[in-house]
């Protein structure tokens, strides 16, 4: 029996598939960014729920923690969190539109030079990412220079 025969689960690339995927297009970097920010946000969320439970230890414990969060290193972490959330949300909206078939164009005969749905979708991708960049910059200016 050939042990290399693909089954339902041994033909997956796993992390290798993340790191190397052949041709790297703009969308491929967005895919990586979406995954990394998603994992960062869920890890932060779990910590955030535990950390905000500190209120149950009383006023001093709460105020001490909030004082720590008001320090510069934590402000930078807070900003990175905000940036990750904005990127993840707007890229998620793009993925949702793709999933639902919006802005992909109508199916066409494959006549050279080929036009892929990804290329037809790309202007929207650029607009959404520019919007994300703008919100991230504005968010930073409000957070650091209120």
């Amino acid at each position: 029996m050939n042990s290399n025969k693909p089954t339902a689960y041994n033909n997956r690339l796993g992390i290798k598939g993340w790191v190397y995927a052949g041709k790297y297009t703009f969308e491929r970097y967005l895919y990586l960014g979406h995954r990394l920010t998603g994992m960062g946000l869920i890890a932060y969320m779990l910590l955030h729920i535990i950390e905000t439970a500190n209120r149950m230890r009383g006023v001093e414990a709460w105020e001490g923690l909030m004082g720590l969060f008001a320090s510069w290193p934590f402000k930078i972490i807070e900003y990175l969190l905000f940036a990750a959330a904005v990127f993840h949300a707007l890229n998620g909206v793009r993925l949702l539109m793709t999933e639902l078939g919006f802005f992909l164009g109508k199916p066409k005969e494959p006549v050279y030079p080929y036009s892929s749905s990804i290329k037809r979708h790309r202007p929207l991708t650029y607009i959404i990412m520019a919007l994300a960049g703008l919100i991230i910059i504005l968010g930073g200016s409000s957070l650091f220079f209120p």
Partner: peptide, 10 residues
């Protein structure tokens, strides 16, 4: 989402 990422692993 996390489950999807983990379940992609062999």
């Amino acid at each position: 989402g996390l489950r999807g990422i983990i379940r992609e692993l062999p």
